[in-house]
Structure formats: structure tokens, C-alpha cells
Design a protein around this nucleic acid. Sequence first.
DNA 1: CAATAAAGAGAGAACGTTCTCTCTCATTTA
DNA 2: TAAATGAGAGAGAACGTTCTCTCTTTATTG
Lengths: 236, 236
Amino acid sequence: MVDQALPRQAPNVSANAADDEHHCFVAKLFGKRARNREAQEERILNAATNCFIRSGFRGASMNEICSEAGMSPGALYRYFPSKEAIIEKISATHRQESAEILERMSQSRNIVDAITQVGLDHVKKMSMNDSGPGPRDSSARLFVEVRAEAMRNESVAAICELHEGLMREKLLGAFTAAKERGEIDPVTDLDLAVATLAAMGEGIIMRNFPAQGLPVEALEPVFRALAIAVLRPANK
Amino acid sequence: MVDQALPRQAPNVSANAADDEHHCFVAKLFGKRARNREAQEERILNAATNCFIRSGFRGASMNEICSEAGMSPGALYRYFPSKEAIIEKISATHRQESAEILERMSQSRNIVDAITQVGLDHVKKMSMNDSGPGPRDSSARLFVEVRAEAMRNESVAAICELHEGLMREKLLGAFTAAKERGEIDPVTDLDLAVATLAAMGEGIIMRNFPAQGLPVEALEPVFRALAIAVLRPANK
DNA sequence: CAATAAAGAGAGAACGTTCTCTCTCATTTA
DNA sequence: TAAATGAGAGAGAACGTTCTCTCTTTATTG
């Protein structure tokens, strides 16, 4: 009954510790074990994402996630130490994906074109469903969930702030460059412009524009007009 | 053991049912009993609001709410049948208060002035704390919580849709009137303008502008520029 | 190569806690 | 006195997490 339970010790009979370490390192990076671990983590993350979209961070139970992943609790807890950890990982990934849309900013010469494109890309991403079944606007749902969680979860708040800082920085950089190129009125307050455009981006996600029956394409001239309004104010 | 549990029926020994009904009606509206009931309900609602802001709808427990209200569960459940009911009531109230800001719309002659004022009022309300202690931006926090809940709670979703429909209607009415007065370019898509401005409003709440160190007053010219951009697009 | 040891991976029951909500009974009010 | 009100224990379910054990894969040894 107890004769097989406890005796679990690492023997470590090797004479060369460095060799062992190196071997372990290689195995962790490229081995079948490591690849399998990554695959399982992704399986859990996908399942959890679906559950969180369906029931919210607090509303979804670990059992629900386990069922969705086709996995036992014991197995799941081998890959993530807590529900918190899963929430944090998903929040970080989702925010990062949003932030990455800004990468295209530097590709465009015209700053108004660039803003317009970023806005459209954002809306498109948010009306998408990255992970299989479920509502079409999964990404937007998860977005709101992350925002709500950030209100009272310090870790998630830190994650949000990190990516938002990066976004602000990138936007500000692009605007400054455009200003130097003479595309923007010299008196425009760029910090204010960044904050305004970022807020508008989030609002449009929340209200879930496309879900209201408005086609994404209709937003093109709107984004353009807004970009012009914010970057080159008519008065003052 | 069971002899006292269920038999709780209104005896109604009166010969005149109409009199009783009338009496009851009057008592409910003006009696001390009714006033006390309302006071207790408000006490619970205030406590619950604080808890929900602090911990979220799902995160806050009924015990937490009872403690905050200085009340036992037995007492609380006399006034609200479930946690759900409290959530719904608070959601409805909060959304209604937001919608009521639009009442001023009709007071102003100039449509751009009106939009600007509504935007500023909205931001001011959201940076406020209606119910005593807690963070300064309680209203915004609650707003996000309601939005997240609406994503998966049908009742709350219905409440949101109701008030948003009213808001859209009111905005559209004001825009139409302004168009007839010649304030708005005849080719402007008013539905799109309504949706855009509503989305921007929500976004600015979410990003919590004032909390980012930007004074509310700085937003005045921004709102003005945006209103002009949305209502009278430069091209097309 | 066969035998053996160690570790990895996973299943599922069970843990202690916390949840929402109910029941009983005492107190207050009209 | 009869109804309204409230306190508080606690029922019963669900929660996140851990524990024990089995089975598979990998590494080591003779």
C-alpha cells in the first residue's frame, strides 16, 4: 500500500555535471518532451480562452476548462500552477497581439493613412474568432474581460499598463516623425492626440461596431476624418 | 419541524377586498413601512455597488455585501431574491444615469456645442465616485463591469440594449433636427455618426482619461474637433 | 540487447474552503 | 396579538487545488 509511494530521489550518478547540464538544456529546447509540453500548454490555453469568453474569468471553473481541454485537473495543474497564472498568460498574449497591430505604423509614409489602417485592422481583429467555435466577436469579448479584470487584479493591470505604454510610445514616435515631416500642425498636442486615438480604438472595440450591422469598410472614411480632426485641429 | 415552515399565506379576512387593496396600495406608497423598505433596499444597493466596484460582480460574495451593509443574509434576502437581482438592478440604474446625460441635448441650439457638452459631462460623471469611499473613478469601474457582464448575462445584456437604443434614438433625433436646420452636411450618414460618437464615448470612459493625468478641460477642443469631423466629413 | 531505475504525464477521488441561499427563532412594530 | 423584521446557523453545492496512484517514456546498467 505504501511500499511504492515515496522513494523518489534523483540518483545523479554522472561524474561530469557540466555534461549533464548541457544535455538537459538541449533536451529542454529541442526534445520531444519539451515540444509536447508546449503543445499541452497551448491546448490548455485554447480551452481556457474559450471558457473565459463563454463565462468570464471568474465565471469559468477549472472543471469547465479541464473538460474543454479533455484533461484531468491533475494533468492541467502540471502545466499551470493556478487559475491566476492562466488568466495572466491569456491576458498578456491578447494585449500583445493588439499592440502588434501598431507594427505596421512605420510602413506607411502618410500618417493619416497609417492611423486609418491601424484602426481598421484593430476592428477587424476584434470581430474575429481566433480559437474555433463560439461567437464571432470572441476577441472583443476577451478584451472587455481583460479590462474588467485589470480593474482589480494587480498583475493583469501591470500587464495592461506595460503594453499600453509600448503602444503610446510607438504612436507618439510616429506622430513626432510626422510632425517633423510637416504633416501635422506644429501646435497640435501630440500626447493628447495619442490618448484620444487610443481611447477611440478601445471604444470602438467595446461597442463592437461590426456586430451592430455596420460593415467594417464603412469605417474607413470615419477613421480618416477622426485622424485628421485629432492631428490637425481646425482652431487653436 | 415542518409545522411552521411553509404555511405563510395572506389570510385576508376582510369582507371588502377593494378596501384592502386600496389600503395596501396607499400603505405601500406612503406608509412608514414602505419608506423603511425603500431605505433598506437602498442601503443594500449602495453596499453592493461598493463591493462590486472593489471585487467585481462575480468576485464579490453575498457575505461581503452583507458585511458592507451591516446586515445578515437572512435580512438581505428579504429585500432581494438573489444576487442576480441585485446585479440587474445596479446595472439598470447605472446605465440609466448614463443615458440621462443626453437630456441636455435638446437644450442647446448648436449641435456641435451640444455634443461637446455631452461628452464632457460623460467624462465628468465617470471620473466621479457616487457612493462614498473607494477609488475616484468608481463609476467607470462599474461601467466596465456592467459591460463585461452583459457579454454573458442575457438580462444585463437586455438592460444595456434598452438604454443604448434610447440613447441612439435621442442622438439620431437631435442630429436629424440639426440636419434640417442646415447645421450638418446633407450627405452625412447620421446612423454612422451616432454609432461613432457613442463608441468614442465608451472608449474614453474605459481608458479613463482623467486618471491618466489629463485634465477634463483639455478634452473640450478635442470633443469639438471630433464632433465636427463626424458630423461634417471633409471629403465625400 | 535485456533488465532496471527514474522521471514524466495523466486520471480521478478527495480535500478544505467558500459560495449562494434557506430555515428557525427571537425581537420589534402597529 | 399578529404581522413584519432580522440575526445567524448552516445546508448543500461548487469552487480551486492537491494527493495518490497508474501507465508510458527515457536513460542507465550489466
